[in-house]
């Protein structure tokens, strides 16, 4: 064995991605779960959109955004779950200590979780977006380059939240697992997924604008209703995401250090 181990290794990241790929491949219920809920959500909102679109006036116009909103919300939610569940798999398997005493660095671990988030999202999202075309004639991909900007910003936020939740579980044990599943739902009303920010009371609007996904959902509505790409909103979301990711990275490191102090890495449990 060499005297030195590289400070950063793509091979170690690949090892972690391979570990989760083996797991997904070996478990059809896990694969089904990734596709199942997005498909159910898309179907429900698709029918609602069909119904509302038949109504006269502004309501019909707003209905046009429902499917785009639900699919983008799913990118945010599934992106975070993809990150957090891959982390939780290590806790459930009591494998975290094995990883922490291996040469795997925290930054490599986080990058592997990000890759898994993208893989899990792709497994769920691509078939569901194709179903939206087949059932409701809604081609999400027709949003074009704007879609890439929406995706990138939502994924950045999902990784920041995933990193924070994983740090909490690492420090507090599996008793904090519930946060992983529920924290993102706080974003549902505040990021204005289905309605404009102007709907919120005045005092709540600055809080909404401090959340990067708010700008994405506003941008989506501008694109679908007014056919205008709001680069200013995307730049705002990107700047906020840079802050969020930096904050989440600091929190993850601090929670890892606290887990070492508290001895929770050695005996994983509740």
């Amino acid at each position: 064995m060499s005297e030195h181990s590289p400070a950063f290794s793509l091979r170690r990241i690949a090892a972690m991605v391979l570990r989760h790929w083996y797991l997904l491949r070996s478990s059809w219920p896990r694969l089904l779960e990734i596709v199942y809920w997005p498909a159910v959500q898309m179907t429900m909102w698709g029918f609602l959109q069909l119904h509302v679109a038949k109504q006269p006036g502004a309501l019909a116009l707003a209905a046009g955004t429902f499917l785009a909103a639900v699919l983008l919300w799913d990118v945010l939610f599934r992106g975070q779950l993809g990150f957090s569940i891959s982390f939780l798999e290590e806790m459930w398997a009591r494998n975290l200590a094995n990883l922490m005493i291996s040469p795997l660095r925290p930054v490599e671990f986080v990058i592997a979780l990000i890759v898994m988030s993208v893989i899990r999202l792709a497994i769920g999202f691509v078939p569901v977006s194709l179903l939206a075309i087949a059932f409701f004639g809604f081609n999400f991909w027709s949003l074009g380059l704007a879609l890439a900007a929406f995706f990138a910003n939502l994924l950045f936020t999902s990784w920041a939240v995933g990193m924070f939740c994983s740090g909490l579980v690492m420090r507090q044990g599996l008793g904090a697992e519930g946060l992983t599943w529920s924290l993102m739902f706080l974003f549902l009303p505040l990021t204005c997924v289905y309605y404009p920010v102007a709907t919120l009371p005045q005092w709540l609007q600055p809080i909404a604008w401090a959340l990067p996904p708010t700008a994405v959902f506003e941008g989506m509505r501008a694109l679908v209703i007014e056919h205008a790409f709001r680069a200013d909103l995307m730049a705002w979301a990107l700047a906020l995401n840079a802050l969020w990711l930096a904050g989440a990275a600091v929190a993850f490191q601090a929670l890892l250090a606290a887990a070492r102090r508290g001895g929770s890495l050695l005996q994983v449990g509740e």
Binding site: L18, R19, P103
Partner: peptide, 25 residues
């Protein structure tokens, strides 16, 4: 090695050793 830690149950022995072999360079 410790009884307080485990290897991922769904992965085969070969898969587990492959992953850790790669992690350890």
């Amino acid at each position: 090695e410790s009884p307080h830690v485990d290897l991922p149950h769904r992965l085969t022995v070969r898969q587990n050793l492959t992953v850790f072999g790669m992690l350890y360079g």
